[in-house]
């Protein structure tokens, strides 16, 4: 499978605060093949999170083309972005962002249920995913009853419920202690195999950075392939 799942050409993204224009991405090119793990490194403020947000259609860009799993993101109308997010991408953030009023199982099932899967199917799928992340016995616990590492693993299970082709993870171990980070790391490493997804991973954690098949450094608005 040599067809790229992510293809960015001439990608430019600026933020203007007042008179000042911040050029975060400056005619950047980026390419990634299916079922790979790609780590993105770079100094703080270089635009790594912004880039992930663009890939996940959370953020718009100024110019260039961004093609993700066949969707030309510049061309997708605002209204259809929900469909893209629902079907193509799964997010894992530095903060787990689980809904506090829902159990682990409900948190995982919710995106599926909201996407139109029947309740029984969504709950069944969520149970399997909790099994996958090793939390089958915590299904009925609320986020406040879970450890940081467990919450992050629930968040990873949630990202997988709609069978995304890409998982975008932004410093998923940033808030975790070493032991929890290790659990999350080994889980992420298995994702392309067990969930047939491509993983784009932004991290400062050098141990986590080693799981990438490829690695890019974002600096000065450009990507530099370092692995």
């Amino acid at each position: 499978m040599n067809e790229p799942i992510i293809e960015c050409k001439d990608l430019t993204k600026t933020f203007s605060s007042g008179a000042e224009v911040l050029r975060i991405l400056d005619h950047a090119d980026f390419m990634l093949e299916r079922e790979n793990i790609c780590t993105i490194l770079g100094p703080s403020g270089s635009g790594k999170s912004t880039f992930l947000a663009i890939l996940g259609s959370l953020e718009r860009f100024d110019s260039g083309t961004v093609r993700v799993d066949g969707y030309d993101l510049h061309m997708v109308p605002e209204k259809s972005l929900s469909v893209f997010r629902r079907n193509v991408v799964g997010f894992v953030f530095q903060f787990h962002f689980l809904l506090n009023d829902f159990t682990a199982l409900e948190n995982v099932a919710l995106p599926g249920y909201m996407a139109g899967i029947s309740r029984a199917d969504a709950w069944e799928k969520a149970t399997k995913l909790l099994d996958l992340v090793g939390l089958e016995n915590r299904a009925h616990h609320y986020p406040s009853q879970l450890s940081g590492g467990e919450r992050q693993r629930v968040a990873i299970a949630r990202a997988l419920i709609n069978g995304p082709t890409i998982v975008l993870a932004d410093e998923p171990t940033g808030n975790l202690d070493a032991a929890s980070a290790e659990e999350v790391r080994s889980l992420l490493q298995r994702l392309p195999d067990v969930a047939k997804t491509t993983l784009v991973l932004v991290t400062h954690d050098s141990a986590l950075a080693t799981i990438g098949n490829t690695s890019h450094l974002l600096k000065g608005g450009h990507f530099e392939c370092i692995k």
């Binding site: 996940g56 959370l58 209204k79 929900s82 469909v83 893209f84 997010r85 629902r86 079907n87 799964g90 997010f91 962002f97 809904l99 919710l110 995106p111 909201m114 996407a115 949630r158 990202a159 709609n162």
Partner: peptide, 16 residues
């Protein structure tokens, strides 16, 4: 806001 943003990030539409 955050919880609503989470819903939106996993594909819940503004109408939903």
């Amino acid at each position: 806001r955050t919880e609503i943003a989470i819903l939106r990030s996993f594909g819940v539409s503004p109408q939903q």
